[in-house]
């Protein structure tokens, strides 16, 4: 089950890639994450995680078109694979199930 078990940050990155749709490459993922989580996310970390997720088969990537910015270097765009999507869904389901187990009465006591 190694492939489907993902950590918290990995989940966030996967979600962001999914949310950004066609425009998910390392810098944009990094910016988006920083904006939504409110913490500074380092490029190095994101880069490493993207790479790891690709190795796990949860993401796939391809190089985009060359542009004049970025010193003429192409971007590497990421997309979710089926496994990636499954992993996210599975994670969400697991959480939902756990949420449902919390009785409302109990919840309000805290």
């Amino acid at each position: 089950m190694k492939g489907t078990n993902i950590g918290e940050f990995e989940e966030l990155v996967l979600l962001t890639v999914a949310a950004l749709m066609e425009d998910a490459y390392s810098v944009s993922v990094c910016d988006e994450l920083s904006e939504h989580t409110g913490r500074t996310v380092k490029l190095g970390v994101v880069h490493a995680v993207l790479n790891r997720l690709e190795e796990k088969g949860l993401l796939k990537s391809e190089l985009g078109e060359a542009t004049k910015s970025r010193g003429g270097k192409r971007k590497r765009f990421y997309q979710l694979t089926i496994q990636g999507k499954n992993a996210l869904v599975q994670a969400k389901e697991m959480r939902d199930q756990l949420w449902e187990r919390i009785p409302t009465v109990n919840w309000s006591k805290i």
Partner: peptide, 15 residues
């Protein structure tokens, strides 16, 4: 394999 997009990313940050 990583060279081009990594350089691109760093370049973007640099700018």
């Amino acid at each position: 394999k990583y060279l081009e997009d990594l350089l691109g990313d760093l370049n973007e940050y640099f700018e």
